[in-house]
Design a protein around this nucleic acid. Structure first.
Lengths: 298, 298
DNA sequence: GGATTTTACGCATTTCGTAAGTATT
DNA sequence: AATACTTACGAAATGCGTAAAATCC
């Protein structure tokens, strides 16, 4: 059994069982892939893939089970390489951060700037996606760290660190009736609402707040606070956004009203795979996030 | 990075950093070991071992950390091989059972006989050791399944299944004063006691029962019930043994008195590594144990 | 017919083993 | 002096690439 064969087996799944694509990914020719897969299956003694003629179309139950172990080996191998590189020079490397637009724009700038001062040699790749995708990115190794509010909690493979707590705010044009009044759930629900898409940035808490009340008339849902603001400015309705996304300087044409008495507080978390070795600078990045969180109050 | 290099690295730890012994284990010559270790360390870019001249004397911190990953890889590789063999022929294989003398002699015979009827092709290696050693054997891969009463509970890497509950009995010659009387902790403590060694077969529960009472005068402690019986027969004192270890047919020269009202019940458990793939017959062996447990009442 | 996989064969690389040299106890 | 490790070099084995054949869609 060779590491390269195990890696090939793993890559074959990623390429939808295409030998030629797998060959590209492994930087060898197809014929070598054919041969190595044959050798690997021969050593296992049973086929790992279902075949239709010459083509692979699915994995056998045995293949599926062995894939779990192959993934474990892949993970450990990567960890060895990270450990080695980290030991040689813990000031250089790459950090893949997966997060939502709101975090990327309103929370991350400060900690990232601070981090870059300490680690100018570390490249930061920021990857915006939905919370569901974030978790998937962690599992598939496309991201090292995820920062988000939703979903992340009940995955036992994840290390989850609570980062900070925040409340929603309602935003509206200055001349809007709600700009002055006391805000209640009923009054809020009487206006057209613009807010986050399902599964994003505390949206579940908004749902929770209104579940015993009038249904919300959500006229626009976006993943992205800036889109919501834009349409609030156009008079489409009242926006419900994360409190920290209201910027007093930039958004001074809008009024923000705190909703902490109406919508439960949301908790933004930092998550990463327990199995994945975070290089030193990665651990320091997490520290930086936690430090920024203590200062970060809406 | 080669699997064989990772395996070599792992074996080097087992051989106390002896290249020549590692060479034997890997079935290659030393010079090849030297070379492969050089290549591996070169690829890592940092030494994995502390050296004194030409000899390895310890692992570097980096080496220690990488050893964890190497163990994970080793485990996953073994799982692949077990899965493969199991798939080819799940009726043949080897099962390493680690347990204490008491379980081996008084609980295991029935389930093992039943198991062998179903799986005549599976070799059972029974390995007797202290509960502490049992757990170590699981972690080092020397045993697949451990069966014992003590220790096993708080290791998060272990899958622990409660098997059966039992109570201690006091045994003594027929003419012993305790053979007739009501037994209390005080009365029991007034005689010289023979029982299990610390850390064995419910000994902790015996300690617990007597912790608020007179200290026990333990004149003999053994890992093994038969040794205790032997010395009870010689009149050395009263034996406190596992209830199931008293055999009405063989031990009819001794009297057994139930101590369930004095000493808390003990729980025998089945344990195996979560990470370790148990072949089908291994899972069936566990089932057999659990089945036997329901019939097994003292 | 174009794309994909398999088979065949030569070449390059890797890794082992032997043997001699060097260090350690 | 004996044991343990390293270096050097030739031999065996492994694995890749090219090219041609077979199969799938």
């Amino acid at each position: 059994m060779k590491l390269s064969q195990i890696e090939l087996f793993r890559v074959l799944k990623e390429t939808n069982f295409s030998l030629s694509q797998a060959a590209d990914k492994m930087n060898i020719v197809q014929s070598a892939v054919t041969r190595q897969l044959q050798l690997f299956e021969m050593e296992i003694g049973s086929p790992l893939f279902e075949r239709k003629g010459k083509r692979l179309i699915a994995m056998t139950p045995l293949g599926l089970r062995i894939m779990q172990e192959a993934n474990a080996i892949h993970q450990a191998k990567n960890n060895i390489q990270s450990l080695a590189l980290d030991h040689l020079d813990s000031s250089h490397g790459v950090l893949h951060i997966a997060t939502t637009h709101t975090q990327a724009k309103y929370f991350l700038p400060k900690p990232i700037l601070r981090f870059r001062e300490k680690y100018p040699g570390v490249r930061i790749y920021m990857d915006e996606a939905s919370p569901e995708q974030l978790i998937d990115k962690l599992h598939t190794g496309k991201a090292d760290i995820a920062i988000c509010t939703e979903k992340v909690a009940d995955d036992t493979y994840l290390m989850v660190k609570p980062c900070y707590e925040w409340f929603h705010s309602a935003i509206m044009p200055k001349d809007h009736p709600l700009a002055q009044d006391d805000i209640t759930l009923e009054r809020l629900a009487s206006f057209p609402i613009l807010t986050y898409s399902l599964g994003f940035t505390g949206r579940s808490n908004i749902e929770m707040a209104f579940k015993n009340s009038n249904a919300l008339d959500i006229v626009l849902a976006a993943a992205d606070t800036d889109v919501i603001k834009t349409y609030v400015r156009l008079g489409l309705g009242v926006g419900i956004i994360a409190g920290m996304a209201y910027d007093v300087n930039i958004d001074n044409d809008l009024v923000a009203r705190d909703l902490s008495h109406l919508i439960p507080c949301s908790r933004t978390k930092i998550a990463y795979l327990k199995k994945n070795y975070l290089p030193l600078y990665g651990q320091h990045f997490v520290d930086e996030l936690l430090a920024a969180a203590t200062e970060f109050r809406i």
